[in-house]
Design a binder for these strands. Structure first.
Length: 564
RNA sequence: GCACCCGUAGCUCAGCGGAUUAGAGCAUCUGUCUUCGGAACAGAGGGUCGGCGGUUCGAAUCCGUCCGGGUGUACCA
């Protein structure tokens, strides 16, 4: 596509001495393979009517000999056709082992933070998106020439700890905890949150005070508190790692809030001494951000002296700055924290941090109520756990392949493919309505549909041993749609990485899969009376398609099974 | 109140660096089928792109405004 737009660009320059960038689009096939509305865009600056401009450009483009057909339509669209043979040559020229990747990142360093679950409760679908999309963004950064460091910023500090200890002492015991593990911790957490709520409505704050006391104890190095913290975190971390393993995501680092809390306290002292932060009479510490248009002061330390999220996050920014000098940091965190992050980023600016800080937020996962309204999924109403989701997906995948020779490994790939792909169906910011049928979709716009197309391609390649062939005499006409689609891939990766929108890769892969399924339906590859040249030429295209499938799916954290 | 997000087919969602006839999946209906693997393919019906106004030769897309829904708005994370 670059090459084609460059040809037009040159023609535009020669005729009108304009450097207006040419945008190509894919029109309805009846009009052409590519089209551009450059003539309309030039009309104003050139001072001629668009139709006239289009006509003279079209003449010039015909002279170039690169197009099999050039026509002008409507108010001044230039529609172009390129022969399949030319497109095939173009693909061959731009092909490499790293087809699709680029160097846009220029070796700069980016830290991607995900999935950062809290230790307080079992891993729920609430953290599906940060983990899944965070991983995809990491992969996109890698594919576009960034040096990537990933960090699991675990929520292993702060209020949840206090809530746990209070709840554990009040509603649980050693035996229950030993038997229930992380699920018992989850129960304790929910139960205690409820008790705190009831207490608050009754105008009391006994439990709330106890929660804060335990936090203070922990910060002051009380051995009992530290022992509780160690015990609870150990249980939770093992669980988090198990789920991340099943989701096939990992991070380079795992520096949680607990790690940064002491550093945070120190950082706050520095801010105070520099006069950036202000201590209120009640002991709490704030930073004013009026000059950034934010009139709510940023609370960075509670009145009882304990740390909160902002405290540890400031320390995290400073720590990363000193360790890695990142050019960019991406936080894969839910949308509820948008305001918090605008505050945090404003403070970073105030501290002179130059790093590009990005809050990669996602639409919420909602559930549908009986009255048809939608509502955010919450622990209060009963969340779906990640473990449950993975189990169910595997069970369903297993039922489908019953009686076929499919490995357990492959079943898991399909199950995971279904879950992950469904998360990429919509734009990152769109709220997702949780439904078991959507998330396990096996046909239509779904992970398994794409995986299936890839598996078919690979099977044909395995059975037919593609080898280099002289394809000069072959016109590639039946493969034209697929070749054009394959030519689009690098641009898709580029834009997807630029916008941090993995779902664009997903849409693309679906379209490629669809084109391929249609292609098999009407074009024999290695059956019937297909000549050797045809066969090898077709296998050559399939080989490239196979690469793009594997590459694109891997950007989404999805693997291609052997059989399914 | 203010800030941000959302409103496109019965449902779930694309498209929104303007442009030739607004797309996909699911659901419904009809075909293809002794398959290089049917988790497939071909086709049908279904839309005042929330309302109004503006910019433009041209608006689902940009701007304004109103309506409806969601989220956030310092001692939670």
């Amino acid at each position: 596509m670059d090459k084609i737009s460059k040809i037009i660009q040159d023609a535009v320059f020669k005729l009108f001495e304009s450097e207006q960038t040419v945008q190509l689009s894919s029109p309805d096939p009846q009009f052409g393979d590519y089209s551009t509305n450059i003539a309309m865009q030039l009309a104003k600056t050139v001072g001629k009517n668009p139709r006239e401009i289009a006509d003279s450009l079209a003449d010039k483009l015909r002279e170039s000999g690169e197009f099999s057909e050039v026509s002008v339509a409507g108010p001044g669209f230039i529609n172009l056709r390129v022969s399949a043979k030319n497109l095939s040559d173009l693909l061959e020229q731009s092909w490499s082992e790293k087809y699709g990747e680029n160097k846009d990142g220029d070796g700069k360093t980016v830290i991607v933070e995900y999935p950062s679950p809290n230790v307080a409760k079992p891993y729920s679908v609430g953290h599906l998106r940060p983990g899944n999309q965070g991983w995809a963004v990491k992969r996109l950064m890698e594919a576009t020439g960034w040096k990537v460091i990933t960090d699991n910023h675990i929520g292993d500090y702060g209020a949840p700890f206090g809530i746990w200890v209070v709840g554990f002492l009040e509603f649980s015991d050693d035996e229950k905890l030993d038997n229930g593990g992380v699920y018992e911790l989850g129960r304790i957490y929910i139960r205690t949150k409820q008790a705190l709520k009831d207490e608050a409505t009754a105008g009391e704050r006994q439990l709330a005070d106890q929660v804060q006391e335990w936090l203070l104890k922990l910060e002051n190095g009380d051995t009992e508190a530290q022992e509780y913290s160690r015990r609870f975190n150990e249980i939770s971390l093992a669980h988090i790692h198990e789920i991340m393993n099943r989701m096939r995501i990992s991070t380079d680092l795992e520096l949680g809030e607990a790690f940064f809390a002491p550093k945070g306290k120190q950082a706050i002292q520095d801010l105070l001494s520099k006069g950036i932060a202000i201590q209120n009479p009640d002991g709490s510490v704030i930073v004013k951000l009026d000059e950034y248009g934010i009139d709510v002061p940023f609370l960075v330390q509670k009145s009882n002296g304990t740390a909160l999220y902002s405290t540890t996050d400031i320390a995290t920014i400073l720590y990363r700055e000193s360790m890695w000098h990142p050019d960019r940091v991406i936080y894969a965190v839910g949308p509820e924290q948008q305001f918090y992050f605008t505050q945090l980023f404003a403070l970073a600016k105030k501290l002179g941090i130059k790093t590009e800080l990005i809050h990669l937020w996602f639409g919420m996962i909602e559930q549908i109520n009986e009255d048809g309204t939608r509502e955010k999924m919450s622990s209060r109403k009963g969340v779906v756990l990640m473990e449950e989701l993975l189990d169910q997906a595997e069970t369903r995948a297993r039922e489908i392949v019953k009686g076929r020779d499919v490995s357990d490994e492959d079943i898991k790939k399909v199950a995971l493919g279904a879950i992950k792909f469904s998360d990429f169906m919509a734009d990152r910011r769109t709220n997702i309505l949780f439904s078991w049928d959507n998330i396990f979709a096996l046909s239509g716009f779904s992970g398994p549909y794409v995986q299936y197309a890839a598996v078919r391609v690979n099977k044909i390649l395995r059975d037919n041993n593609p080898k280099y062939a002289e394809t000069e005499s072959y016109d590639f006409e039946p493969e034209k749609t697929i070749i054009m689609k394959l030519l689009d891939y690098p641009e898709v990766v580029k834009v997807s990485a630029r916008d941090l929108e993995p779902h664009k890769v997903a849409s693309y892969l679906y379209e490629l899969a669809k084109d391929l399924n249609r292609y098999y339906e009407q074009t024999p590859i290695a059956t019937g009376d297909v000549s050797d040249i045809e066969k090898q030429a077709r296998l050559g295209i399939l080989k490239k398609a196979s690469h793009v499938f594997a590459h694109g799916l891997s950007l989404l954290g999805i693997e291609v099974p052997i059989r399914m």
